[in-house]
């Protein structure tokens, strides 16, 4: 199972990684990037099973990442993780192909449910 986390905050990346349910926390391969561009470059290479994506980031933000993703891999499983969830943002990311949008901080139960729903082949 390969999990990609894209967030400009190191704390945010680590918090999400820490919330991974057992036994995934030990078995999954977690790769982390600071902005959309880095994530996109890595995605082309390694095709992770699921991507957790922050919205506000320098260089390339979450929306641009999603737009680019449309041309790279329409079936990609991208979950948007944000502190501020407004209806308009929700509609926009869904239109851009995101599978779900969840509020920070993501707790282990929510994370497990998301993984079960969208990336079941990992476990």
């Amino acid at each position: 199972m390969k999990i990609m986390i894209i967030d400009d905050s190191k704390t945010a990346r680590l918090m999400l990684k820490k919330a991974l349910p057992e036994p995934l926390a030990d078995t999954a391969e977690v790769v982390m990037f600071e902005n959309g561009q880095e994530g996109l470059d890595a995605y082309r290479e390694s095709r992770p099973d699921i991507v957790f994506l922050d919205l506000t980031m320098p260089v390339m933000d979450g929306y641009a990442f999603l737009e680019n993703m449309q041309t790279i891999d329409k079936t990609a499983v991208v979950i948007v993780v944000s502190a501020d969830i407004q209806q308009s943002a929700k509609e926009r990311v869904h239109a851009l192909g995101a599978k779900a949008m969840v509020r920070k901080p993501v707790n282990p139960a929510t994370l497990k449910a998301l993984l079960d729903d969208f990336a079941p082949r990992g476990h």
């Binding site: 501020d84 509020r103 920070k104």
Partner: peptide, 15 residues
């Protein structure tokens, strides 16, 4: 860390 935690707290507040 402080920035991220505040980001979360203030997100909760505004929602």
């Amino acid at each position: 860390a402080l920035q991220e935690l505040m980001n979360i707290s203030f997100g909760v507040a505004s929602s």
